[in-house]
């Protein structure tokens, strides 16, 4: 359930700031990737029973637990709606993104 979240990445200013070859600390997410989302899943925590089926079916691994509650990492959710479709309690609504 623990997933890495986007962190601030300080761009190298000296060649020595680069790692030796393309290898770096795992799970260091430096860029977001959700710009094409048109609907966002919103979880109604009153209806949510913590069954975590949404976590199981999310193709991008963006469902996580934050302070004991199920949450979505909107930095990476692409808005596919699989979680909303599979939720047994209809606790996830797909809300149109406002530009």
């Amino acid at each position: 359930m623990e997933r890495p979240i986007k962190r601030d990445f300080k761009r190298p200013t000296h060649i020595n700031d680069y790692p030796v070859g393309p290898q770096y600390e795992a799970g260091f997410l430096a860029e977001t990737n959700a710009s094409w989302r048109t609907f966002r899943p919103v979880i109604d925590l009153d209806k949510c029973i913590n069954c975590l089926i949404c976590y199981m079916v999310c193709p991008d691994g963006t469902i996580m637990k934050r302070e004991g509650k199920v949450a979505v990492d909107y930095d990476y959710c692409k808005g596919c709606g699989v979680c909303a479709h599979e939720c047994p309690k209809d606790a996830i609504a797909m809300i149109k993104e406002e530009l």
């Binding site: 290898q23 600390e25 795992a26 799970g27």
Partner: peptide, 8 residues
């Protein structure tokens, strides 16, 4: 753990 042989 490391992310290895990544793209750039």
């Amino acid at each position: 753990p490391k992310n290895m042989a990544f793209s750039s």
